[in-house]
Amino acid sequence: MISIVLVDDHALVRAGVRGELDQAFNVVGEAGDVAEAVEVICSTKPDVVLCDVHLPGGNAPAVLTGVVERGVSAKFLALSVSDAAEDVISVIRAGARGYVTKAISGDDLRSAIQRVHSGDAVFSPRLAGFVLDAFSPTLEHPTSELDVLTAREQEVMRLLARGLAYKEIARKLTISIKTVESHASAVLRKLQVSNRSELARWAADRRIL
C-alpha cells in the first residue's frame, strides 16, 4: 500500500483529504507547517507527500529542499486551493511531480497519487496551459533544446489543457497511454530544469496582473 504524508495548515482540509484517501492508501503522517512537515516526512519516509503550496514558516518549496537536504526522497504532489499557476510553478520547479487543485474529485486525486507514485507527471488543465504559455514559440530565442517542446509534446499539452484524460489523449493521437505518460514526464522535466528566462518572466508578469 502506498504510504502518504499530508501537509496542509488547515486541520479541516487534512481531515477531509484523509477521509478520501484512508481506504486506498496508508496515511502515515500529517503536518501543518514547514518545519513539522520536514520532520514528519524524514521520520516516516512516505512514498508520496501531498503538499499544500502556502504554508506557515515558508512554502512548499521549502519543504522540498528541507527534505532533500536530509537525504530523504519522496515524491511530491502539490495540492493547492490556488489555481494560479504562478503559485504552483515554484513547487513544480522545486521538484514536485504534479499539481492538482483542491476542487479535484476523490477518484481523480487517488489516481493522481497512484500516477505520481509510479513515476509519472500529473498535470491539471491549468498547469498544461501554463506550460504552453511559458514555452510558447512566440517568445523569442530558445536557448537550448530543453527550452522547446516537441510538436508531439505540445500536442499532448494542448489536449491536457482541453481537459482530456491520458486515455483520451492516447486515443485521439492514436498512441499508447505509456507514450502519453512519457511525453508528459518529459515536459515536466523540461519545466523543472529549464532555465529559460521566459518562465520566470511569465510567472512575474502574472503576479503583477
Partner: peptide, 9 residues
C-alpha cells in the same frame, strides 16, 4: 455546472 477556463496567450 462548474466551468474551468484555461487561457493561453
Amino acid at each position: 455546472l462548474p466551468i474551468e477556463v484555461v487561457s493561453v496567450g
